[in-house]
Nucleic acid binder design. Sequence first.
DNA 1: TTGTAGGCGTTATCAC
DNA 2: GTGATAACGCCTACAA
Lengths: 325, 325
Amino acid sequence: MVTIHDVALKAGVSVTTVSRVLNNRGYISESTRSKVYRIMEELNYHPNEIARSLLRKRSNIIGLIVPDVSHPFFAELANHVEYYAYQDGCKVLLCNSHLDPVKEKEYIEMLKRNMVDGIVMGSHTLQVDDYRNLHSPIVTIDRQIDEEIPYISSDNYRGGELATELLIAKGCKKIAHICGNLELKLLANKRSSAFRDVMSRHDIEYVIIQTDMNVFDHAQYGSIIERLLREHPDVDGIFATSDIIAAFALKGCIKAGKKVPEDIRIIGYDDIGAVSWFEPELSSIKQPISEIGRLSVELIRKQRDGEPFIRENILPVELMERSTT
Amino acid sequence: MVTIHDVALKAGVSVTTVSRVLNNRGYISESTRSKVYRIMEELNYHPNEIARSLLRKRSNIIGLIVPDVSHPFFAELANHVEYYAYQDGCKVLLCNSHLDPVKEKEYIEMLKRNMVDGIVMGSHTLQVDDYRNLHSPIVTIDRQIDEEIPYISSDNYRGGELATELLIAKGCKKIAHICGNLELKLLANKRSSAFRDVMSRHDIEYVIIQTDMNVFDHAQYGSIIERLLREHPDVDGIFATSDIIAAFALKGCIKAGKKVPEDIRIIGYDDIGAVSWFEPELSSIKQPISEIGRLSVELIRKQRDGEPFIRENILPVELMERSTT
DNA sequence: TTGTAGGCGTTATCAC
DNA sequence: GTGATAACGCCTACAA
């Protein structure tokens, strides 16, 4: 490995001078500058970021903790977080919690030991206190820990309203809502509150079905749908809290011989790319994932640099009507 | 930030001793050991990994460069690489090249400056020489750079055979193959070679359509399919080189009023999760992505530690027959 | 305009 | 068993 000393030696100057050239600090004569540059080139020198980080007490790394990047929503989130982090001169350390609190906690410790600039928390398996005592810039996605920790979410309540109102407007008389486990205190639960509110307002019959805690166990969806259609054969509208669930609902309906959207209308949530790869294309509520990613990085940076920042960030959602409603 | 010095001071021992306790090296009396542990606890001390890395000349980080994590294949790859890296005590730095050679090169430089243990290259926008002169443990996915650099791919040729032979066995009389741009010297091109070989052997009519370089521009797929069906209305089998393309083909066929698989049979490649979320479920060739991830990490580790390793790693594929064939 | 010296937090080496 | 001390590669006062 070639260090700043090697360059200094070969260039016949001190390490300070090389460092100055490197960082464009202070005054250097044009001749030494170009000489140093030439030697750096010759030796193929690249400054050691680790040494820099040690000095700076910061690694320019953003830790991104998600349940599972292979889930389309988090894959897109990771994609955008990386995009904006890169623009900020930061790197992204990818951490899957795989819904394991131990792993999530270990990752948090690891990130702190590596002096990351901050942590974007997309996974939430720990207790509130564990997040509170981080002493590191942090942003949570879709969960509000307390007054202090900034969070980002899309307007879940509005999303729930939009989806529900659409089904009603289309004339649905009995609507099923399939949501995640409401025990988890996620902001996504507001979609369900909105559903309940709108339905009560319109005095339409409805059922709410909670899925298992494990969002990644897709096997459960098939049977949940089947049971729903069996126990409530008169359901003519389904609002699913994710596109994946909605896709399984669609599949279940087709298998059960129902026509979509004629017999039963279906709308999902997230607007992941895959919904438009298949036919019929799924109606969905679109979250501004790119903006969520951008804001995550910005909020980390602002906290890190001691700039003021907003703690509650609720982003607008958009109804994407396609062929299943 | 609390350092090893603070612990040493409060415990009334030297930093050396604390370091020994920390790393379980040399002899320490049980009493000092427990005292040190207690103080570490009290002070909530966590060793600074950056300082360690500086000394060790290694960050325990694996750089993962992919075109785009939001693509299901790479999302799954990232997921598994992270899984196995974690088991090895390594972290994963996520790098999207977004098909930009400049960004890819900058990422490579950055990773070297950060003394990563190695680089998993899933993106290939650079020239062969750029990869050759890395002087860092590296593994390429689905591309063979030269004799030296280890690569991992699934058995693309066999995959191509399986897909093609299935369509033929089902009685297809005119088969279209939609593949990526063959200019790019990717091992995935062997799928197309296999297709051509098998078709010639059986003397069946076929067409081969290359898509654009940009794999992430899904907009092109719709029109490609439409044109295919228009120019070759008698095609009764499609072998697409990715599930996404296959999904668009499926959609195009349905829109064109064709019944799948009765009028036309379709098979994709990769077996991404999404294919089984929708109806009809897509037949596909499954790549062992988990094993690819595991091997990537193993090959980095072996190179890093100077252990012997295998340079050519071709993993078996599997035919997943579902409802579209 | 350039150089010397000290320190970032840790571990390895060698003494005691 | 334990403790000084010197690295690791870089940057930044301060001095010249």
